[in-house]
């Protein structure tokens, strides 16, 4: 048995693609995941570049011209004035604190993911299960936080913002609470549109990542990868999960900080 195994190459070796060569020394699945991720990079870049273009086409808030900051349709809002609410702390101004917590949750779930991949290399099935579960918990917590943030953004502050607009040739004043795709108490409607599109598209990615993670956890727990002899699926889905974390790093900087 040992002698034949040494001389006869297996008919199909998972390390090489079907032709017996392995372009870029990466398995087929991993390389295709990389190319999918680069195409996804273009989609997210398009959204963030659009944000930059639209933001630069609006006046920026300038204390010398506009006085003390308040929500207005005349200029682009300062993100830290918009995102300052935290669950259970109604009426307390805590700029960017909740977004910061969400950022740490996602970074931490990325760490547990890479720990699952590392455990997979050692074929340590219980450790893979444990870390996959933590990653799923992190992903679900992030999604819950985002749902709360969206809900707050849509419902708005207690005071609302007074908007002057022309209705049937007359100037009319009216108070707007929160934001949707056509009106926005925090600033120009485009700001709310971009918020919904960018964080929504990212949230959809987190959701599909959680679904994939649950699938991987299930297949690990039932011993499929142990029987297969390797945990490469964990690595491939791990690449996707890290990408989702990476996108959030960029969204955090360009949407919330700058």
């Amino acid at each position: 048995m040992a002698a034949t195994a040494a001389t006869d190459a297996p008919a199909f070796d998972k390390k090489t693609w079907m032709g017996g060569v392995e372009p870029m020394k990466a398995s087929y699945g991993k390389l295709m995941m990389w190319f999918f991720l680069i195409s996804d990079t273009f989609t997210f870049s398009a959204l963030l570049v659009t944000y930059g273009l639209i933001r630069f086409s609006y006046p920026a808030y300038d204390p010398a011209i506009h006085g003390e900051f308040k929500f207005s349709q005349l200029y682009w809002p300062i993100p830290e004035k918009v995102y300052e609410a935290v669950p259970f702390l109604h009426g307390v101004e805590l700029p960017l604190v909740f977004v910061g917590i969400m950022t740490f949750i996602l970074i931490f779930s990325s760490v547990t993911m890479v720990l699952a991949v590392e455990a997979g290399h050692r074929r340590d099935q219980p450790a893979v299960e444990k870390y996959m579960l933590w990653t799923i918990v992190g992903g679900l917590t992030f999604l819950g936080s985002q749902a709360w943030e969206w809900s707050h953004f849509i419902h708005g502050t207690d005071e609302g913002t007074i908007i002057r607009e022309i209705v049937n040739g007359q100037w009319v004043e009216r108070t707007v609470f929160g934001a949707n795709l056509t009106e926005n108490q925090y600033g120009p409607p485009a700001f709310a549109d971009l918020f919904f599109f960018i964080t929504g598209f990212h949230g959809t990615h987190v959701l599909s990542g959680v679904v994939l993670n649950i699938l991987i956890f299930y297949r690990t727990a039932t011993g499929l990868y142990e029987r297969r002899g390797h945990y490469e699926m964990v690595e491939k889905v791990g690449l996707y999960w890290h990408f989702v974390d990476l996108v959030w790093v960029f969204v955090f900087t360009f949407f919330y900080l700058v």
């Binding site: 990079t41 273009f42 870049s45 963030l48 570049v49 659009t50 930059g52 273009l53 639209i54 933001r55 630069f56 086409s57 609006y58 006046p59």
Partner: peptide, 16 residues
């Protein structure tokens, strides 16, 4: 992509 970003930021400034 960085090139596209810089080009369109300048374009946004021109629209303003």
């Amino acid at each position: 992509v960085v090139w596209l970003l810089l080009a369109l930021l300048m374009e946004g400034g021109a629209i303003f």
